[in-house]
Design a protein around this nucleic acid. Structure first.
Length: 781
DNA sequence: TCAGCTCACACTTTTGAATAGC
DNA sequence: AGCTATTCAAAAGTGTGAGCTG
């Protein structure tokens, strides 16, 4: 029934065999991967599993993540990290190498990586720096990379370095490999999510999301900044050949070119002169040889002269650089002999790693990045580096609602401006050879539930002396779902299967449960590599911000109660965006969707909600309400406030007096964007912990509004089941409004994602080196 | 004209199968 | 027979630069 090939078996340590049984090549017979739709509902009705591990809860609150190769990231960040994306997919370099702690050793967790846009801008490399030059392109299908070890026990994760270097990025919007699809020349922020998985059939129970500001990057199809190229070549073993002493270095390439030319010249000589008179083949100036090459290029190749002259032995040979010792190679060989788990996690970039990285670090002074080691702080105003996400600090938070400084319509990327706190970072000071950085993980506290209509500080300024932000215990049920729609405009799906289960299902299905940010140290004093844990809560949507004068596309959409949808058939119906789909939605669908009938049975209640909830538009700013964050702040990049899990709704409400946001597309550079500068905030992605602590809460409409995957008309070119009158949003909010949404319900959440993962190859992309999930619904249509 | 993208290329590392030795 | 180490070839990951596209 299901092809396990979808998820090639992974090399598992003996300790994990039991953890990952589902990865066997043969599907376990006892594993109901495709439970009937209503079966899922039934299970959803059942009382959620009792959290019998209180210890886990306490530990959960202390989950920490460290970016092990933070110094390398900061090296790049200080220049302006660029990531190549190709149609076939390109790995990230540097890769994310993490250290986890605070997990319950006995519980299983799933690690996910997703990459979200930092803002709604498109960038261009101008004048040695990155400048925002316009609005971002439409958001692409959200895809998540699942760490190949997932699920594994906390002990497993904590016992080694976790690497996501297998994840690939692509700019191919029709990618069928499941790589993470990104737009070129856009700025992105990777996020890592740790999700508790009681077993294969039970996802949810707790989620922690981490963000490392220094891992922001701009996607490119070709490197723009020479400094980045240099850094990549010097630090990526695969690019070793391009180093000055490498065989593919400029010098060597030139030499090869000359040899080639000389060969051609010889050919010419053979044609015109004595075939055996190689004495005429003398080194020539590059210019002349190039010209000759051009002239000769059109000549048909001739048979090798019988005189025995070999171009390889040409006079240019002496220009070659002596063969390099295999020192590095040996280092790799050594590492390759290490246990699989180790080699995998250690990643290539660090295997030779310490060597390469260290050399870079040691060279940092000579690489024109003196500021880096000192504090990784403010680069010159005209620095070519793009600003990295600011680390949480009081100032940033307080400025969140302030729109006064957000009027810069055309912000050029400011220099990296890591908070001064970084300067004291032990990590930075230790741009040491030790790959294991003494970094502090900052776990952002979840904000207290907010019932007020006014924004409240997400983090108290009274930060504890500790450098670590702790997540708080599961919120009070009543406070969990600030977004809990009491709004009747959000009628439950009409599916017979779900009708009665709506609430409960919803409550269990959203990973992102509102969890208040309690206090917190929002101004870490020491954080070289701060892991920003997304607040557990999506701040209450206190008070629906003023309705936008500009009608929202979706608002015009007539109610589409259940959308047994004539979902647009998209050729590449390759994704099963279940995660992003509210439970009731998931409940209705797909298990048996076949390629041939990719959509017939799909119901997207959310869509109807979206269409029916104009009020929500205010509460949950539609895409159009998101403006160019980067253009609104001096440091557009990473809004520290975002780390505080300021949901878009919160943001919206946080600046009630702000003028209606203009459609981003219309004013990527418009000053009005300033008002929503906070929209770049990170959304809360911390899920509720245990289902029972999460009262039946209807799904939050925000999910629809903010998750492009749930917006049926994202791509205007795609047919839609909705009236054409409803203009599809072409621009989606910045990453801030894209919390990771997974089904929290143990059953539904699992069955869906796994179905997705194993059965639908096109949808859930299984790779020996990890799996990808489409988090978007769009792709499936 | 030009910015951005695609592709082939040469080089490198990684991976896994095959083999040999114990 | 089972395990480990070594060898080898194929696959895959790099940046480059020419050429193409809109």
């Amino acid at each position: 029934m299901l092809s396990v090939e979808m998820f090639p078996s992974l090399a598992l340590g003996p300790q994990r065999i039991g953890d990952c049984f589902y990865r066997d090549r043969e599907p376990p017979a006892h594993m109901p991967l495709f439970p009937p739709t209503c079966d899922v509902a039934q299970r959803l009705l059942a009382p959620p599993p009792v959290p019998n591990e209180p210890a886990a809860k306490t530990q959960k609150d202390e989950v920490k993540m460290e970016l092990e190769n933070a110094s390398l990231w900061k090296q790049f960040s200080s220049v302006g990290t660029e990531m190549i994306i190709t149609k076939k997919g390109r790995r990230m370099f540097p890769g994310l190498r993490l250290k986890l702690s605070g997990l319950n050793p006995t519980l299983r967790y799933i690690l996910l990586l997703d990459i979200i846009p930092v803002d709604n801008s498109r960038y261009r490399f101008q004048g040695g720096g990155w400048q925002a030059v316009g609005g971002a392109e439409a958001r692409l299908p959200d895809r998540v990379f699942i760490h190949p070890d997932s699920p594994a026990t906390g002990a497993h994760w904590q016992s080694r370095t976790i690497s996501f270097h297998y994840a690939k990025l692509t700019n191919n919007t029709l990618d069928s490999q499941g790589h993470i699809i990104l737009h070129s020349l856009h700025r992105y922020q990777p996020r890592v999510h740790v999700i508790e998985a009681r077993d294969v059939l039970r996802w949810g129970g707790g989620q922690h999301s981490f963000v490392f500001p220094e891992t922001q990057f701009i996607t490119v199809t070709a490197y723009q900044n020479n400094k980045i190229t240099e850094l990549k070549i010097n630090s990526n073993p695969f690019a070793k050949g391009f180093r000055e002493d490498g065989m593919n270095s400029k010098k060597q390439r030139d030499a090869r070119q000359k040899r080639k030319i000389s060969a051609l010249t010889e050919t010419l000589d053979i044609v015109n002169c004595d075939p055996c008179d190689s004495t005429q083949l003398l080194p020539q100036p590059a210019a002349s040889t190039d010209l000759q090459a051009l002239a000769l290029a059109s000549l048909p190749p001739l048979p090798d002269p019988s005189c025995g002259y070999r171009p390889e032995d040409a006079p240019y040979q002496d220009t070659l650089v002596p063969e390099q010792p295999l020192v590095l190679g040996q280092a790799f060989m050594h590492s390759s002999q290490m246990p699989v788990s180790i080699s995998m996690t250690s990643g290539m970039q660090d295997t030779p790693g310490s060597e390469v990285t260290n050399s870079i670090i040691e060279r940092s002074d000579t690489m024109g990045d003196p500021a880096y080691t000192s504090s990784f702080p403010a680069a010159p105003a005209n620095s070519s580096s793009f600003p990295s996400a600011s680390l949480p600090q009081s100032a940033s938070f307080s400025s969140l609602p302030d729109s006064s400084n957000t009027s810069d319509p055309q912000p050029s990327i400011p220099p990296i401006d890591y908070p001064s706190t970084l300067s004291s970072s032990p990590t930075l000071s230790s741009a040491s050879s030790s790959p294991s950085l003494q970094q502090t993980s900052f776990t952002f506290p979840t904000p207290p539930p907010s019932n007020s209509s006014s924004p409240q500080p997400l983090l108290s300024s009274s930060s504890p002396s500790s450098n670590t932000y702790h997540t708080i215990p599961p919120p009070n049920p009543e406070m969990i779902s600030p977004h809990t729609p009491t709004d009747t405009s959000f009628p439950p799906p009409s599916s017979s299967c779900q009708s009665g289960l709506q609430d409960q299902m919803s409550a269990h299905s959203l990973l992102s449960q509102g969890e208040p940010i309690t206090s917190g140290n929002n101004s870490p004093n020491d954080q070289s590599s701060a892991a920003f844990i997304y607040p557990n809560i999506l701040p209450a949507n206190p008070d629906p911000a003023p309705v936008h004068a500009q009608p929202l596309p979706n608002q015009n959409q007539p109610p589409a109660p259940t959308l047994p949808c004539s979902l647009p058939t998209h050729g590449a119906s390759t994704s099963f965006p279940f995660h992003s789909v509210p439970p009731h939605m998931q409940n209705l669908s797909f298990p048996n969707v076949s390629p041939s009938s990719a959509h017939p049975t799909l119901h997207l209640p959310n869509l109807s909600h979206q269409a029916q909830a104009p009020a929500l538009a205010a509460a949950f700013p539609p895409p159009s309400s998101f403006t160019h964050p980067s253009s609104s702040l001096p440091h557009p990049p990473f809004q520290p406030s975002s780390c505080l899990a300021v949901s878009s709704s919160f943001q919206q409400s946080s600046a009630p007096s702000l003028p209606p946001a203009t459609h981003p597309q219309n004013l990527p550079n418009a000053p009005a964007a300033s008002s929503t500068s906070s929209t770049s905030s990170y959304p809360s992605v911390e899920i509720g912990t245990i289902p029972q602590f999460n009262p039946p809460a209807p799904y939050r409409p925000e999910m629809m509004l903010h998750h492009p995957s749930l917006l049926p008309q994202l791509d205007p070119s795609l047919p839609s089941c909705l009236p054409s009158s409803a203009a599809p949003p072409t621009l989606y909010p910045a990453f801030s409004s894209y919390p990771l949404r997974l089904c929290q319900d143990p059953h539904s959440s699992l069955s869906i994602p796994l179905r997705h993962l194993y059965r639908q190859h096109q949808h859930g992309h299984a790779h020996p080196q990890g799996a990808y999930l489409d988090m978007s619904a769009r792709a499936m249509f």
